[in-house]
């Protein structure tokens, strides 16, 4: 099953039509999500208007974690079945995931200033998200540190798999430690404890972020395939 899609040309043929679909889905969902964020979602009775930061903060934090898990799965597939396309997916995911993680840290600190009175606290969830950002940066640095791209893929794949240990720590940090960051209110046993008028904008924004991720991922993988074709052509020219 996997090997069928390891052929870059087949992948290109299948995924090219997806690019405009994902682009349009992102634009429409983002527009709908932003409209709901600013106009239909109510202001919080305690936090006032600043609760609207949540609709960017929470989806980007989810995506930061989601991208890491996706990267780890792709890295494992690349390592185990020597699937070259999975390596490219892992590589292409890293900067997107790092950007989402960074965005969630920045929006979180902007939200923290009016609510907690400080931009940053060394709370378990904040710290583990920061570690996630460092893991992304370490991955990208290791990826680029080798002359042979193949070695970069393998070495960084092992690093990603070692770092997976951080993912459950982030998810459960708010339950394990008594922290300033509020506990889980959407994905938890017994259903979400958040009101539907706030849940819906949140879900639409999350979907928009996800389609954005798929869109940029496809673009980046296409670019990587093109780059490796150029590299192969240059090598052939040089050796001819």
């Amino acid at each position: 099953m996997f090997n069928r899609f390891a052929n870059p040309n087949r992948f290109l043929r299948l995924s090219r039509p997806l690019v405009p679909v994902m682009a349009w889905a992102t634009v429409l969902l983002m527009a709908a999500g932003l409209y709901m964020t600013f106009f239909t979602a109510p202001a919080d009775y305690q936090q006032g208007q600043s609760v609207r930061i949540m609709y960017v903060h929470v989806p980007s934090a989810w995506m930061g974690l989601f991208c890491y898990v996706g990267m780890a799965v792709a890295a494992a597939v690349g390592l185990i079945w020597r699937h070259s396309l999975a390596d490219l997916v892992a590589k292409a995911t890293a900067p997107i995931g790092a950007a989402f993680t960074f965005l969630s840290l920045v929006t979180g600190s902007l939200w923290g200033k009016p609510m907690w009175g400080t931009y940053w606290v060394w709370d378990a969830r904040l710290t583990s998200m920061l570690v996630l950002l460092f893991l992304y940066l370490g991955y990208m640095a290791l990826q680029n540190a080798f002359d042979d791209p193949e070695r970069g893929f393998k070495a960084s794949a092992i690093l990603v798999l070692v770092g997976v240990i951080n993912v459950p720590i982030i998810k459960f940090s708010v339950d394990w430690w008594n922290t300033l960051h509020q506990p889980a209110s959407v994905i938890k046993a017994g259903g979400p404890s958040i009101h539907p008028s706030m849940l819906w904008p949140l879900l639409v924004m999350s979907l928009a972020f996800t389609t954005y991720y798929v869109w940029v991922l496809l673009l980046r993988v296409h670019a990587e395939i093109a780059a490796s074709k150029i590299r192969a052509l240059r090598m052939r020219q040089a050796s001819a």
Binding site: T127, V131, F134, L135, L137, G138, A141, L142, A145, F146, D147, R151, A155, I158, L159, V162, G163, I169
Partner: peptide, 27 residues
């Protein structure tokens, strides 16, 4: 040890090693 094995044959090994290993040392 994992970090040291990963950076073998890379450019700028030492600095890279600290970037890989320090986040994992935090716990």
């Amino acid at each position: 040890g994992v970090g040291a094995a990963l950076i073998l044959g890379s450019r700028r090994g030492g600095v890279l090693l600290s970037l890989l290993v320090l986040p994992l040392y935090i716990p």
